[in-house]
């Protein structure tokens, strides 16, 4: 059930930074299928601004790891044409805040082609988006726009919470016949974790949409994804010192949502806190709270609480640690649900 891999498993397991786990996932997918090609700004010779595609152009050539013009709509739009021709493009949008020039292509074209063609045209495109804050960046480099895409039928929206999941989920996203928005927690790129390199895509098992219990607990269900999974695990560690047992659900996907796993947990704990960096208002936590309330109304001991971004644009770097869901803010929410 758990996404994490014990450090002591097979020889195929290595400790890799999150970013390099994605690199290895991309490499495995490209070796498996020569129709898989990478496209994006500065991803070839430079290896991407975060070096996630480092070394891949040297291995696969400049026609499979393609440096594109600086035009996000152009990247997604041409990828749609390539996919219609039978290719599986994996696109890199350099930063979260730069996805908006491609928003039209993603929502009006990519998301709808399978539906409007009555299933005749499949667009197996993955859009990788380094997202979230905590890296001291300038404007437009720390945002969490995932809810905007989860709100669009036809797209899958996922975000790995561990290095091992990053490695497997990128392969599963590439193998998926549906378009996938793959949000990478850039603030965690250099955190190392165990990665079992023998694991390939498990699309048939549906793991791309299956939430994981990252830590078992009995008092509070804490729902997180991407960058806040680590925050949730740390807060669970801290709460345990005070005798509060937190169960951490790593969603992996916010579209579709694995409601069953959340509900099963909340029915046991009676309390639920959702943690994400995205703005709280109309954010993924709102949908989760609604679903939990609908299905766990009589089991709930306290209202579902959300810990997320405030309703203002992402702040300047000097203030971002007051904006992001910190350990203290998450524990404050735990205290409030426990007070009921």
């Amino acid at each position: 059930m758990t996404a994490t891999v014990s450090d002591t498993t097979a020889e195929t397991t290595q400790r890799l930074p999150f970013a390099k786990a994605i690199t290895e996932g991309l490499r495995a997918a490209m070796r498996r299928d020569d129709k898989v090609m990478l496209m994006g700004e500065d991803i070839g010779k430079l290896g991407g601004v975060f070096r996630v595609t480092e070394g891949l152009q040297a291995e696969f050539g400049d026609h499979r790891v393609v440096d594109t013009p600086l035009a996000e709509s152009g990247i997604v739009g041409t990828a749609i044409g390539l996919a219609m021709r039978g290719y599986s493009p994996v696109l890199e949008i350099q930063f979260d805040g730069f996805i908006f020039p491609a928003y039209d292509q993603i929502t009006t074209q990519l998301a709808k082609m399978h539906y409007r063609s009555k299933g005749r045209i499949k667009l197996p495109i993955v859009i990788r988006v380094p997202f979230g804050g905590g890296i001291g960046a300038v404007e437009h480099h720390s945002e969490s726009p995932e809810a905007l895409f989860a709100h669009t039928p036809g797209l899958r929206v996922v975000s790995p919470g561990s290095a091992h999941d990053a490695y497997t989920m990128i392969q599963e996203a590439i193998a998926s016949p549906d378009p996938v928005l793959f949000f990478e927690p850039k603030g965690r790129y250099w955190e190392k974790g165990p990665v079992d390199l023998s694991v390939g895509p498990r699309v048939e098992a549906g793991t791309l949409n299956k939430a994981a219990i990252a830590r078992a607990g009995s008092d509070v269900t804490m729902v997180a994804y991407g960058p806040t999974v680590a925050t949730a695990l740390r807060s669970a560690e801290a709460a345990a010192q005070e005798g509060i047992s937190i169960e951490v659900v790593d969603l992996r996907a916010i579209s579709p949502l694995d409601t069953d796993t959340i509900v099963e947990s909340v029915r046991r704990t009676g309390r639920c806190v959702v943690v994400h960096e995205a703005v709280s208002y109309m954010g993924p936590g709102a949908e989760i709270a609604a679903r939990v309330t609908e299905r766990c109304f009589y089991e709930l001991q306290a209202p579902v609480l959300r810990v997320g971004g405030f309703h203002h644009p992402y702040p300047v770097a000097k203030l971002e640690h007051d904006y992001l869901p910190s350990l203290d803010r998450v524990l404050d929410a735990v205290d409030r649900v426990m007070a009921h």
Binding site: I80, G81, L82
Partner: peptide, 9 residues
């Protein structure tokens, strides 16, 4: 853009 991508294909 779809046309150009298809031609690139």
């Amino acid at each position: 853009l779809h046309a150009v991508g298809y031609a690139m294909g």
